[in-house]
Design a protein around this nucleic acid. Structure first.
Lengths: 186, 186
DNA sequence: AACAGAAGTCAACCGACGTTGACTTCTCTT
DNA sequence: AAGAGAAGTCAACGTCGGTTGACTTCTGTT
């Protein structure tokens, strides 16, 4: 059954594109169907419901680099560059933009984002900073997601204006400190 | 006409509460009306439309402190504490939570947030760090809003777990640096 | 060529929502 | 007390979106 694979893939591709551009509630099954040049009923036929299509469409793998192979003093910069590349690249390699855009609106998206955070970012931090890894990962996420929020979602002028290299120069040190500094006793 | 003032205020209060809890699209005029114990038609009568009710409901004044009267080394901490208090307080003093929750979904909310950013945060940074104020304000907003996003909207476990004082201890230095450090030439 | 099962189409249902306009009730002035 | 204007009620309209189910068309095997 080759035909079915094609339409299934077409639906998925259209869905990813739509969800990347708009939050969950503003994406309609009808719009996805139109873009995939099929009938709205097919979406349901293949994916049961909009909700489960959404779940299927977002398999977020951040492909985080293995920081153990990176100079200890450069890890913050490497991580930040990788993160920015996810957003700057137009290739839609990861579904992170999809997730962040919907997370404020859609609890399922928020839950998935928490899962990605724990299994990928926190896990990765653990490999290079086993001491206080969860705490460090939290701090790092607050800065990284803050960058994504202000630059790509809210589009604050002072953030959109910057070139990626400039952002790295300004922000990598902060990430680096969260990763390696001694933390207050708390 | 005293009665009208009361219902008008009741609608506004209900609206603020609803918008603070849910993004724009998930708040219905009917729900606001129910909470205010009035008829949905009254909402339109008093505020013309849901959209203009939203605009009226959010008059965001962050009441940012005047950092010029604060020890130069403590400004980051003071600013961060003030920001956290906005979110921790249950008194709904400011409409910032309303705005952030809707900003990912609703362009009008995002636009308003940009305005608040420019007129309040950036303006305040200018008073204590006139050099590169816009750039510094951008960096600070990325960290502050990142905290709000991860802790209060996404509720990442490693951020919700922390006590405010712990967050201040870990994060105030970063804010302080964005405020006062020499920045790379860019 | 014929038939079965897959793939695709079409129209409609149902619920939710913002908004409207006609109607009723209240309230205050004279 | 009466009448006018404000305040409030009610039912409905129109739209949109997810979902359904019956129907038609295609495809591949025998």
């Amino acid at each position: 059954m080759k035909k079915s694979e094609r339409t299934r893939a077409a639906i998925l591709e259209a869905a990813r594109e739509q969800f990347a551009a708009l939050p969950y509630g503003q994406v309609s099954v009808r719009a996805i169907a139109t873009q995939a040049q099929i009938d709205p009923a097919m979406v349901v036929r293949y994916f049961t419901s909009k909700e489960s299509l959404f779940s299927t469409a977002i398999d977020v793998d951040l492909h985080l680099p293995d920081l153990r192979g990176v100079d200890a003093e450069q890890r913050g910069e490497v991580l930040l560059r990788h993160f920015l590349a996810i957003w700057e690249g137009d290739d839609k390699q990861t579904a992170l933009p999809i997730l962040l855009r919907s997370a404020a609106t859609h609890e399922a998206a928020a839950a998935r984002l928490r899962e990605v955070y724990v299994k990928q970012l926190r896990a990765m931090v653990s490999t290079v900073a086993p001491d206080q890894a969860a705490r460090r990962a939290g701090l790092i996420s607050s800065q990284l997601l803050g960058i994504a929020l202000t630059r790509y979602v809210l589009r604050l002028p002072d953030m959109t204006r910057r070139k990626p290299d400039g952002l790295v120069a300004d922000l990598a040190p902060a990430i680096q400190r969260y990763l390696t500094d001694d933390l207050p006793k708390d």
